[in-house]
């Protein structure tokens, strides 16, 4: 799917995060290479989402650095799909913007069980369907690194298995995945990173 990179896709050095006047974590060190997956675990409010946004480059670190290699795709609680558009058209906007092949996009939609929903406006989709639609947008981007913030929220058991398989395939193809979730994520060789240990 994507070219294998020799160096780590994401390297974090001495990272600290402050929200308001609260220090959430500090002294964070890790590197995730091509083909690897990392599970950021920890209770609510520990700074998982903030860390994901820092890794994406959307939030400035309070201290430390994040270095990125290759392209980044982000999935968070906002689907970034136009609510009044049929799902197919809403996904089309992103696949055209990313210059992806339509065959690939169709394959992803089918895998995520979205084919029969492509004519339905995004605003009529359920929570789980919207999440799957956002995953289709993410997978269609064909980025090297996937940053997933609570990707399993609102998904039923079958969809969870599909998402896990999707991430497994992405890593098998040399991609990198960082998953922030308080739920268990089943993946062979998934490194676990307890954010709680870095709380002050």
């Amino acid at each position: 799917m994507q070219a294998t990179l020799p160096q780590p896709a994401i390297t974090v050095t001495d990272l600290a995060c402050r929200r308001g006047d609260r220090l959430l974590f500090r002294g964070l060190h890790f590197a995730v290479g091509p083909g690897e997956a990392l599970h950021l675990a920890g209770p609510n409010g520990i700074g998982k989402s903030s860390l994901i946004r820092m890794l994406a480059g959307l939030l400035r670190p309070f201290a430390g650095t994040v270095t990125r290699e290759g392209t980044i795709a982000l999935l968070d609680e906002r689907p970034a799909l136009d609510p009044y558009l049929p799902l197919g058209k809403a996904l089309d906007f992103w696949s055209r913007l990313d210059g992806a092949q339509s065959a690939h996009a169709g394959e992803i939609s089918e895998r995520l069980g979205l084919t029969h929903l492509l004519d339905v406006p995004v605003r009529y989709l359920s929570t789980g369907q919207t999440k799957r639609a956002a995953l289709a947008r993410l997978a269609g981007q064909q980025a090297n690194t996937w940053l997933l913030d609570e990707p399993l929220n609102g998904l039923d058991r079958n969809a969870v298995a599909t998402v896990e398989a999707l991430v497994a395939d992405h890593c098998a193809a040399g991609g990198t995945a960082i998953i922030a979730s308080h739920q268990p994520f089943m993946l062979a060789e998934l490194a676990r990173f307890e954010l709680e240990r870095y709380a002050p």
């Binding site: 906002r78 689907p79 992103w94």
Partner: peptide
């Protein structure tokens, strides 16, 4: 809806 974040990425 997160469009600006996606464009920034």
């Amino acid at each position: 809806r997160g469009f600006f974040d996606q464009w920034a990425l």
